Amino acid sequence: MTEAVPQAKTQGLSPCAEIVRDHDHDRWLTLLFAAPHMREDLAALYAFAHEIGKTRERVSEPMMGEIRLQWWRESIEGIYDGLARKHPVVAGLADLVARHKPDRSVFIDLIDARAAELYDEGPVDFDGLLAYADQTGGALNRMAAFLCGAQDEAHLSAAHAVGRAWALTGILRALAFQAAMQRITLPKDALEEAGIAPESLYRGQFSPDMIPIIRRIANAAQEAIRKARTQNGSYPAQARSPMLLAVLARDYLDRLAHAGDDPFAAPFDRGALTRQLKLFWAVLRGRF
């Protein structure tokens, strides 16, 4: 079992670790439960995910986002060609690749999945939403488990399922924020069938007709977690850090349920200490 009390220093962090700590605090908490020699690789992966994941928020038009993502594609190719750019996250990825030799397509696919966000089109249907969750959160968490030593396909698939759940939970948590930016990552056909105009969400108006859509997404996240937890008894201890996102996702989903499945009203920003205690308890029990 990994140690219950995180031993990472809070000062003297690498640039990648600082990015994760400051911008992806939930993953930062799970990272602290990884074995010390694994933390820098996870930090590089998560920092990379943050950099490409925030592209849409940082640009005013799709073409600028395409340019940024192309820079990352070229940076990945450079790493594999032995010509890593002088950038802290690229340097971290270069070290990761040297140690673990993952297929470059993993990184390219993660970048490509973010390119679709630039055009604010959103998924056409529920299957498209699940595909998006798999291509982003699922693929990322599978990679994190691989870096931590998971090799069995059942274990890697469980990590992918947790990543899907985390991505779906993130979509629900970010709904109000994205709506304020006039973006919606919800199935278009479901919104149309419910007679919900995206403009109403842009104004922060939540309709009871939204509840079945929200509940279906939350149920899909819970189902992915249940699937992953079937591996609880056999999951290698050294690879449990990425799986702890399941603990955090369940907490957020519980808060959503208690708010009547209204993401605009759910207290997602509260309960940070509670979530940390849940992580400690999960690690002590050797579960996720």
Score class of each variant (00 low, 15 high):
2 T>K: 06
7 Q>S: 15
22 D>F: 05
22 D>H: 07
23 H>Y: 14
23 H>W: 10
31 L>S: 00
32 L>H: 02
39 R>T: 05
41 D>A: 14
44 A>M: 09
46 Y>R: 03
47 A>G: 12
53 G>S: 08
57 E>G: 13
63 M>C: 00
75 S>L: 11
78 G>A: 01
80 Y>V: 06
85 R>I: 02
88 P>H: 08
94 A>M: 00
96 L>T: 05
96 L>P: 03
98 A>K: 12
101 K>D: 10
106 V>Q: 06
114 R>D: 04
119 Y>C: 08
121 E>W: 01
122 G>C: 05
127 D>G: 14
128 G>A: 09
130 L>C: 14
131 A>D: 13
133 A>K: 11
134 D>T: 11
140 L>H: 05
141 N>C: 14
141 N>K: 06
142 R>N: 01
147 L>P: 00
154 A>Y: 05
155 H>E: 11
160 H>A: 09
167 A>T: 08
175 L>F: 08
175 L>I: 15
177 F>C: 00
182 Q>G: 00
186 L>G: 06
193 E>H: 10
194 A>V: 09
195 G>R: 02
197 A>Q: 13
197 A>R: 14
205 Q>E: 15
208 P>S: 04
209 D>L: 12
211 I>W: 00
213 I>G: 03
214 I>N: 00
215 R>I: 02
223 E>R: 10
229 R>M: 10
230 T>G: 03
237 A>C: 04
237 A>Q: 07
238 Q>R: 09
242 P>A: 01
245 L>M: 14
247 V>N: 03
255 R>I: 05
256 L>T: 04
262 D>H: 07
263 P>E: 03
265 A>Q: 13
273 L>A: 12
277 L>Y: 08
283 V>Y: 03
285 R>K: 10
286 G>F: 07
